[in-house]
Structures are given as C-alpha cells and as structure tokens.
Simulated scan of single mutants.
Amino acid sequence: MRVTRKEPEVGLPERFHFKGGGGGVLHGSTCEAVVCTLAAARDRALSKLGHEGILKLVVYASDQTHATFQKGASIVGIPPANFRILRTSANSGYGLTATIVQRAIEEDVARGLVPLYLCATVGTTGLGAIDRNTCFTGTWLHIDAAYAGSAAICPEFQGHLDGAELADSLSMNPHKWFLTNMDCCCLWVANPTTMTDALSTDPEYLKNVGTASKMAETVDYKDWQIALSRRFRAIKLWVVLRRYGAAGMRAHMRRHIQMAEWFEHVVAADERFEVVVPRNFSLVCFRLRPRFMADKAVEALNRDLLAAVNASGRAFMTHFVVDDKFVIRLAVGGSMTEMRHVRAAWELLKEKANDLIATGC
C-alpha cells in the first residue's frame, strides 16, 4: 500500500486575512512595501502628536537590516538622526535581540522621543540571520521576510515566523525564492485602514456615479500603494502556484535547503575553512582560514579566492563583511540548481584554495 505524506496546514495568522480584519496587496518590491507601512505608522502616530511631532519619531532596525529601511524612513520624513541601527553579534547569530531593542527604546523614551517603527528580519540579506522576540507595545512592528518567508510554506520552517501574530505588517518576495519573475512582493497588514488613511486619494475623476454604496465595500488597491495604477502581478504568482502546487513548492524549498546543509557540513569538516555563522536556510557564509595566517592576510586570501572562483566561469558567489571579516556566500536558490552543481562548487573552492595557499598568496 502506498502512503502519501500529508502536510499540516500552515499559513499566516488570521488577523492578516481579509476575513480577520487585515488584508494583503502585491507590490513591486520591499522598498515600496516599506514606504507604505512607514507612512501608515507615521500618520497613525502624528494623528495623536500633531504634524510637528515628526521630529520625535524614531525607527529601529539592526545592523543587518536591509538599507531599504533607512531609505524608506528618509522618504517619509523621519530625521536621519532618529534612525537607530542596533548592533548584533555572533552570540545571537547576528539576529536582533529583545534586550537590545528594549534598551534602545527606553533610552529614547527617556529623551522624550517616540518609538515609531521596528523592523524584524527573517533571513537577512548578508547572513540569513533571524531577529527573534522583538515585539514592543507602541511601535509598528514590520516583519521583513523578503528572502526566507518563502520557506514558511514548509511546516518545519513555519516556526521562524513565531510572533507574526503580534506584527502590524509582514512582507515576502516571491521573486526571490518562490519561482516567480520580477517584480512581486507580498505585503500583509493587520489593519488596512491605517495604510489607506495615509495613502488614499479621492478626486472626482476617480468616482463612479451611482456606485458609492458598492465602492464602500470594494478594496481599492490604489489606496494600498504609492502609484495610482498597478500591473497585473497576480497572474505570474497564480501560475506558479497552479503549476507546482503546495507539494511542489515545498519540495523546491527542501531540495535547496538540503543542498546548502550538505555544503555547510563539508565546509565545517575541512580544517582550512570555517562557517562564519550557522546556516538558517539555503545561504552558507564561510571563509578560508588557514591557522598560520594573520587576520589581514586572511581577508586578502578570501578576496583572492572569491575572485578566482568567479573568474573561472564555473560558479559565481558573492561576499559580505561582518565583524571585519570578509565572508564568502554560497546561496542555493536557482530553479535549475542540482546537487552536482553544489558539489562542483565545493571542488572548485578546494582547487582554488590549494593554488592560493601553495603560492603563499
């Protein structure tokens, strides 16, 4: 008898669904979602403080948060001096901790400032880090799951979104890891009114005579975004879901994560290399670290290693710098990536590392 594995139902908290009082919209990018949620948080706060209170509003993010949030805060009028970049460390896997956030908020409140907006990231761009337990009453909590939110389709990774039921908004980008073409960003909000109050327009030329009562029941997405008109982004996401289904997408995610898990294991087993931060999803951050080399020489060695790998044309990797360490990043996410490609990348790394060490570079 053939037994089919039945996956438990997973999904966002009901408060993000239309039936639960929330709702969702497709944007082009996280940048757009950030500006819209920041504007909503700003206007919600200023409705109590008055418009002159904008100089008191403070936005919080970690030193691993995407720079998009600084850009967005500037666009909506938050003074640059009121953007707090909170330091993370290896002890927390470079994720933001509640203690750090609480300390920063208490210091600002003591100065007479008003905590406005906190970004918690699930799968940071540089290291794939996760911010945990960072919800504080009074701030708008946004969860940026642009990259790793896709993995939450698998029950075993749903726990990374624990606490999402307390958030005001959450975004993820299907165009990053969900087999969807650019551009496509899913944004959910717990209270759509806060966003539509900040973004709505109601000129006469957009009104339909005789349908006012129906319009009151209609979701008008022009009030959920920056632009008035919008592209039909839903069709490409719908096609992916129809083509692969939940089971197919889960298999896609698990296959990539298993490949990254294998790569992390072989890197850790080679005494010349080190895994710089524990892997959470399909991103492995590592470096070549011969024991006899000084730190400055190690940085130069890894820059040369990355350049040699990419110049070979057989693989392409990127880098990041954390705690003054130059780190090489292997991200498994291509739709056609197979285990043989990951194995070949590891053999290439060893080959180039041997050449560099032998020549004393």
Results as ranks from 00 to 15, higher is better:
17 H>W: 07
214 K>R: 11
47 S>P: 00
30 T>G: 06
180 T>M: 01
199 L>I: 01
166 L>Q: 15
47 S>I: 00
216 A>M: 15
195 M>R: 04
117 Y>T: 05
13 P>L: 01
196 T>Q: 12
193 T>Y: 15
163 G>Y: 05
9 E>R: 06
208 N>T: 09
313 G>H: 03
103 R>P: 06
344 A>T: 03
129 A>H: 06
281 F>M: 08
68 T>H: 05
88 T>W: 12
299 E>T: 09
325 K>S: 04
112 G>A: 07
292 F>L: 10
5 R>Y: 14
173 N>R: 05
261 E>R: 03
93 G>R: 06
329 R>Y: 04
5 R>P: 11
259 M>W: 03
50 G>L: 00
182 M>A: 05
54 I>C: 06
343 R>L: 05
239 V>H: 01
126 G>C: 09
240 V>I: 09
196 T>W: 05
276 V>I: 01
354 N>A: 05
189 V>Y: 02
209 V>R: 00
106 E>S: 13
172 M>S: 11
224 W>I: 09
83 F>Q: 13
197 D>K: 13
94 Y>G: 12
317 M>L: 13
38 L>P: 02
44 R>L: 13
276 V>S: 08
116 L>S: 04
175 H>Q: 11
32 E>Y: 03
15 R>D: 09
320 F>W: 14
92 S>N: 13
175 H>K: 06
175 H>P: 06
351 E>P: 03
203 P>K: 05
42 R>C: 10
249 M>A: 07
99 T>E: 14
123 G>I: 02
265 H>M: 14
